[in-house]
């Protein structure tokens, strides 16, 4: 069967022409629908870069290879096109948008995506109901949703707000970039519940994390180690445990 997300030999640079720096260097990775894959790797390995390249952030140049979602090349698409195709990135550092209330923001996004897919807009009552349900599940204060996106939110609140948006938008493919960092223990559980609720035979997920802790809650089907811009090791869920025990040096020494 064809994997949902297929990344083949992907290379990418960051920075202006003169000082372009290669960050991804022949990275290959397949995530079939219905599976959750974890990506771990040392700081600066290129994990966030991968998530930005997949979602089309400017400033990153793809210098080789390909990435397809359900067989469609996504690298040529605008960010919003990819979003409408179902790509969702939970940012490692969510961005503050002064002046735009969360509710307005998410509703605009939802309707834009629906429009791009040729679907009808969501009605205001439906939207509010849905928002209330999701917020409740994530223990989010309704007041918070009236505030401008991420402005003045604590680190953990920002991460929960990313999950709120994810559950509202119901994307097809999820990339969680260190969504666990900054969360307290209860919030981690709540977020994991949210993510698990999204698990579905038709959905794929890429979970970037540094800690086994998150993977206790979100059981991955595969664990990949990203280092020096490529996947250098792939294993089952227990690889994460080994990494935690032995460190990257221990495990990678053996891979090299």
């Amino acid at each position: 069967m064809r994997p949902m997300l297929k990344i083949t030999d992907l290379s990418a640079t960051v920075g202006e022409d003169s000082e372009a720096k290669t960050i991804l260097n022949g990275l290959s990775l397949d995530v079939p629908a219905g599976e959750v894959h974890a990506i771990m790797g040392p700081n600066g390995a290129g994990k966030s870069t991968l998530s930005y390249v997949l979602t089309g952030r400017s400033g990153y140049e793809v210098t080789g290879g390909s990435a397809t979602l359900n067989g469609e090349d996504i690298l040529g698409m605008d960010p919003e096109e990819r979003a409408a195709k179902g790509m969702f990135l939970s940012f490692q550092y969510p961005v503050e948008i002064p002046g735009v209330p969360v509710m307005t923001f998410v509703r605009t996004a939802m309707n834009a995506q629906r429009k791009a897919r040729g679907e009808a807009e969501i009605s205001a009552p439906d939207f509010i109901k849905k928002s209330r349900d999701v917020a409740k599940m994530l223990n989010l204060d309704a007041e918070m949703l009236k505030r401008p996106v991420n402005v003045g939110f604590s680190g953990g609140e920002k991460k929960r707000l990313e999950i709120y948006q994810m559950m509202m938008l119901e994307p097809k493919f999820l990339i969680l970039d260190e969504t666990d960092s900054g969360l307290d223990i209860d919030a981690l559980k709540t977020v994991a519940d949210g993510v698990n609720a999204m698990r579905d035979p038709s959905r794929g997920m890429l979970v970037i994390t540094h800690y086994q802790r998150l993977l206790d809650y979100i059981k991955p089907d595969k664990v990949h180690v990203l280092a020096k811009g490529r996947i250098i090791k792939t294993g089952e869920a227990d690889l994460a445990l080994r990494l935690e025990k032995e460190g990257y040096d221990g495990v990678l020494g053996e891979a090299a």
């Binding site: 089309g56 952030r57 979003a83 409408a84 990135l89 998410v106 996004a109 939802m110 834009a112």
Partner: peptide
């Protein structure tokens, strides 16, 4: 980018 990532043209 954040807005566009969420699907807003």
């Amino acid at each position: 980018f954040y807005l566009r990532q969420r699907g807003i043209p």
